[in-house]
Simulated scan of single mutants.
Amino acid sequence: MTDDVLILIDQQKAMGHPRWGPRNNPQAEGNIFHLLSTWRARKCPVIHVKHDSTSPDSPFRPGQVGNEFLPLTAPFPGETVVAKKVHSAFIGTDLVARLEAMGRPSLVICGVLLANSVEATVRNAANLGFSVRLPADACWSCDKRDLTGRLWPAEDVHQLTLALLDGEYAQVTTSIAVQASTIGR
């Protein structure tokens, strides 16, 4: 059986930019780090997805400090990095080909923002036939204003997004449950 692939979405310094506003789940980065440490200890495949925005005012644009990986979860030499220019890691990249070459493994997807790049990647993965686990505590969300002007708190955005994904696109779980099932293999 092929090992699950851990996919880390947009673990870049740009996520600290004030434009995102208030967020939830301040433990997310630590939980992502613990998942990454588990994968590295077991020598399981890890894919770091990096957003290389083409928008001139984006903190994710190459050449900006925000484009750099966060030190805590930065790729080690030899770990795969997939650069994307849109929300989903599957659009305009070689991610499908890489996963096909690995035997179409199950995926564990985490990172930021849950209601943006993580959600787009999870939905595409499921639509492509991949089995996905999504550790809710290894992602985070930001406040979001809807079209009526109502401001939705980050935790509400997070919980609604998880509810929309669970069962149809992914198995929503926790980082501890993912680590326990990975270590138990």
Rank of each mutant, 00 (worst) to 15 (best):
L36M: 13
R150K: 10
W152N: 06
A115I: 00
R23H: 14
A41Q: 12
V178K: 08
D10G: 09
C110E: 01
A125W: 06
G111T: 04
D146T: 04
L113C: 07
V122G: 09
F60Y: 15
N124F: 05
A163Q: 13
S88R: 07
A136N: 09
L36P: 03
N31E: 08
R123T: 05
T54L: 11
N127V: 00
V157G: 05
V122R: 08
Q12M: 09
A180K: 15
D143W: 13
L165N: 09
P45H: 10
G167H: 14
M15P: 12
A163S: 15
Q64K: 15
A138T: 07
K43M: 01
L8T: 12
L35E: 02
P26T: 01
G184R: 15
L6W: 08
A97N: 12
Q171S: 09
T80M: 09
S55A: 08
D52Y: 13
I109S: 02
R133E: 09
K13Q: 11
H87P: 11
R61T: 06
A170D: 11
L165T: 07
K43E: 04
D3P: 15
I32Y: 10
R40F: 05
D10S: 13
I9F: 04
G167M: 08
A125S: 11
L107T: 05
T121Y: 08
E100V: 14
E119T: 10
R23K: 15
V81E: 03
L72Q: 13
E168N: 12
G149M: 09
A28V: 04
F76M: 03
N24V: 05
L8V: 11
N67D: 04
Q159T: 04
V118E: 06
C139T: 15
E155V: 14
A89R: 10
E68T: 12
A180N: 11
S175H: 15
T73S: 07
A74P: 13
F90Y: 03
M15F: 13
K84C: 00
G149A: 04
G167D: 06
H48A: 00
L128F: 11
T148F: 09
P26L: 00
I47D: 01
G184P: 03
R150D: 06
F90C: 00
D4S: 10
L164K: 12
T182F: 14
C139W: 01
G66V: 03
K84L: 06
G16L: 05
V86I: 10
A41Y: 12
T174M: 05
T148L: 04
A41V: 02
L107M: 04
V157T: 08
L95I: 03
P26E: 01
P77C: 00
E119I: 03
R145D: 01
D143A: 08
D166W: 07
P71R: 04
V118M: 02
G184Y: 12
L6M: 03
V86L: 08
L128M: 08
H87W: 05
M1S: 14
I47A: 02
T148Q: 09
G103L: 06
G16P: 11
I47S: 06
W140D: 00
C139A: 06
V157Y: 06
N24S: 08
